[in-house]
Simulated assay, not measured.
Amino acid sequence: MKLSVVILNYNVRFFLEQCIRSVQSAITTIDAEIIVIDNDSSDDSCLMVKTIFPEILLIENKENVGFSKANNQAVKVANGEYVCILNPDTAVSEHTFISSLKYAETINNLGALGVCLMDGTGAFLPESKRNLPTPKASLLKLLGVGKNYYANHIDKNKRGEVDILVGAFMLLKRTVYNEVNGFDEDYFMYGEDIDFSYKLKKAGYRNHYMGDVTVLHYKGESTQKDKAYFDRFYGAMKIFYSKHFHTNIFFNGFVNIGVSIAKATNRASSSKNNSENNTTKKTFLLTENLTLLKTISSTIETPIKSVSKSIFAYKTFSNNHFIFDSNYMPYDQIFRVMKDLNGKENTFRIHPPNCNFIIGSDQSDQKGTVTVFS
């Protein structure tokens, strides 16, 4: 078997369904398997997988064991030459794995391979490629003034070697994963991907970024920055530096002060929701399915115009709301349109293939929204 796609889920049932369906479309010509591991979700994620995707291997944990331990569990039963660690709140294009595997085969001593991640607005997520997070760089980043945290020496659309990749999408050989003992289970949340990337580098492997392949990642790095976030982030920093750097009481005190400042400066904005009301926008549905048009129109009760994807060849759009029917427009085309229209106050929703909902996000610090058809 060539590829095992490992998806760790926790309470994102609809995002998980879209993720699985997009992966299935992307592995039709690859000898591959999908493994879903669930960290004791309280929603009906597991029931959905067992009902809709009975052929998929589902591992149901009875408690939330965290990111590292769960992914390690899944990789232990994987059969692929390569494994891809994939977040459930992602969607891949039809060519994602074909292109990634082809590129991976050309790299000597490949560690992990990452791709260009964009959020639900079509904006590039800079955590797709990062430099080694030295204590100084991480602290400045936490305070919002760092410039060297991200790997800006490589254009977001280009390819090249980087230090650190993000755990939302990591593709690598299973033998390499096992050689470095997978993700460090001392981490529960945050920091696992940084530690893993660095372990690969220390073992003599080269991490690479592939900017010409785009993956949609609804919830970006900028999760809601409340007290719990900073406490977890700081805890992950302490674990990472204690394992890989020389620290002392003065360094720990300095970082502690920085985290306290970051908590104070971000508290005011942590609960603010800037998501715009999409009912004020013109809404376009990209489809040829008139039944879908009728269903969505009756569900969201706003005027919707059904249009052809050819409209993007003739004009640019701003302050509009677009709903993409993925049975009409493949994910690869949807991603290109979202990137092209990013920054122009447009918002986007996707109707995944054979689903009874539309899904999307208007900002990368939230999980997004789901509208289920009645």
Score class of each variant (00 low, 15 high):
Ile257Lys: 06
Ile257Ala: 08
Val259His: 01
Val259Ile: 05
Val259Leu: 00
Val259Cys: 07
Lys263Tyr: 07
Ala264Lys: 08
Ala264Val: 12
Thr265Trp: 00
Asn266Thr: 13
Arg267His: 14
Ser271Cys: 02
Lys272Val: 15
Ser275Leu: 03
Glu276Ser: 04
Asn277Pro: 05
Lys281Ile: 09
Thr283Gly: 02
Phe284Val: 02
Phe284Tyr: 11
Leu285Ile: 09
Leu286Lys: 10
Leu286Phe: 14
Thr287Pro: 07
Asn289Thr: 11
Thr291Asn: 11
Leu292Met: 12
Ile296Leu: 14
Ser297Met: 07
Ser297Thr: 13
Ser297Val: 07
Ser298Lys: 09
Thr299Phe: 03
Glu301Tyr: 00
Glu301Leu: 12
Glu301Gln: 10
Thr302His: 09
Pro303Glu: 15
Ile304Leu: 13
Ile304Ala: 06
Ser310Tyr: 04
Ser310Asn: 08
Ser310His: 06
Ile311Val: 10
Ile311Cys: 08
Lys315Asp: 06
Phe317Lys: 06
Ser318Phe: 09
Asn320Ala: 05
Asn320Met: 04
His321Glu: 06
His321Asp: 03
Phe322Leu: 14
Ile323Arg: 02
Ile323Cys: 00
Asp325Gly: 08
Ser326Trp: 02
Ser326Thr: 09
Asn327Thr: 03
Tyr328Lys: 10
Met329Gln: 05
Tyr331His: 02
Tyr331Cys: 01
Phe335Leu: 15
Phe335Met: 14
Arg336Pro: 00
Val337Ala: 07
Lys339Glu: 07
Asp340His: 12
Asp340Ala: 15
Leu341Lys: 05
Asn342Arg: 07
Asn342Cys: 10
Ile350Asp: 07
Ile350Asn: 12
Pro352Gly: 06
Pro353Ser: 08
